[in-house]
Design a protein around this nucleic acid. Structure first.
Length: 352
DNA sequence: TAGGCCATCTGGTCCT
DNA sequence: AGGACCAGATGGCCTA
């Protein structure tokens, strides 16, 4: 091994060590038991390549010998012999490429994690899978676009239906858990005996409390702790953009009194209307095209420090007569939930 | 134990 | 030549 090759190899190896020390690198370590071991084996194989024993010097440009006269000439670039030096360079190149690929995937996963935090259902303990995160994000974007396009706010059921469209059952259950809803109340295929255009039984039966039914009623419902459906997600703001694209729609309603990135987490909103303008992709078995005509009031006093109206510790919203977001959060009590939400919001808004 | 999810490795392709 | 990106393969972990 030449000196330069040896140095480069050491450099790459130290890079990998750095990977192992980084947070993402711990994942590498976990999987390293599998793939990493395999890599070592392969490297061992490469190092003991049969051709290697034939040539010990650095002749790299020597062309591969033809196996025989009878064999047709191979097209394309001729393969070069794997000399020891070439083998080492190949190994180094491969290790570098692997490290880059790892970093790239870590970046991708970081971005996905950021996405998880801004879609409606976020939980550190019950992470959405990658594909479900993307699906939920797509639904979420679409639903918000519909709000902007139609100028009307959706009723909760329609909104949740839109969010859950195409999601797996467990994810749907998770979203339901976040909302403290029973998936049966908004999944048409799961409520054969209940017309989907009717208000959910839970809402009708418990006007002041959107109860979440026991997991036993819903196959595959994950165990607590669930994530939370943070209402601020619905009107999530982009860093540096006080109200993002929602500003025109909620112009005059939202209040900003903080620094550049200190958004009022729960703007005082009173939303009425239906989501009948929802247009869903044609999906087999999809029955989401029905229109609903509920109304949801998102009351709130706004301001720094959390969700005053949602938690009931701020200015009450007298306009909220039908269904308040706080009523959807059927946890034990405000203090507990507030802590939960604050922690989550901190994670969301101070993460990046 | 099968299936889902995930991280990683790897070789190919394209681009600079 | 080297980096970014991609898709396939592989093996580990977890859960029903």
């Amino acid at each position: 091994m030449t000196r330069s090759v040896r140095e480069e190899l050491a450099s790459v190896e130290s890079d990998e060590q750095r990977d192992l020390c980084s947070p993402a690198g711990r994942e590498t370590e976990r999987a390293g038991a599998g793939a990493g071991a395999g890599e070592e084996e392969e490297e061992e194989d490469l190092l003991h390549h049969p051709e290697e024993d034939e040539e010990e010097d650095d002749e790299e440009d020597e062309e591969e010998e033809e196996d025989g006269e009878n064999k047709p000439k191979r097209r394309g670039p001729k393969k070069k012999k794997m000399t020891k030096a070439r083998l080492q360079r190949f190994k180094i190149r491969r290790m570098k490429a692997n490290a880059r690929e790892r970093n790239r995937m870590h970046g991708l996963n970081d971005a996905l994690e950021s996405l998880r935090k801004v879609v409606p259902c976020y939980s550190k303990t019950q992470k959405l899978s990658k594909i479900e995160t993307l699906r939920l994000a797509k639904n979420y974007i679409w639903a918000l676009s519909e709000i902007l396009r139609s100028g009307k706010a959706p009723d909760l059921m329609s909104f949740v239906q839109a969010l859950c469209k195409g999601l797996s059952q467990p994810t749907t259950n998770l979203v339901a858990g976040c909302l403290q809803l029973n998936p049966r109340t908004f999944l048409p295929e799961q409520t054969p005996d209940m017309p989907t255009h009717l208000p959910p039984a839970g809402a009708a039966a418990y006007p002041g409390h959107f109860s979440y039914q026991s997991p036993g009623l819903t196959a595959g419902l994950p165990s607590p702790p669930y994530g939370t459906m943070d209402p601020s997600h619905i009107f999530h703001q982009v860093k540096g953009q006080p109200y993002g694209s929602l500003e025109p729609f909620f112009d005059g309603v939202l209040v900003s009194d903080g620094p550049a990135f200190d958004p009022p987490l729960s703007p005082p909103l009173s939303i009425n209307g239906n989501f009948s303008s929802f247009k869903h992709e044609p999906t087999a078995g999809s029955d989401y095209d029905k229109s609903f005509s509920f109304s949801v009031h998102y009351g709130g006093g706004g301001g720094a420090g959390g969700h005053p109206s949602i938690y009931g510790n701020g200015g009450p919203n007298p306009r909220c007569g039908e269904l308040q977001v706080e009523q959807l959060m059927g946890f034990d009590g405000h203090s507990h939930h507030e802590r939960l939400m604050n922690a989550q919001l901190n994670a969301i808004f101070h993460d990046s």
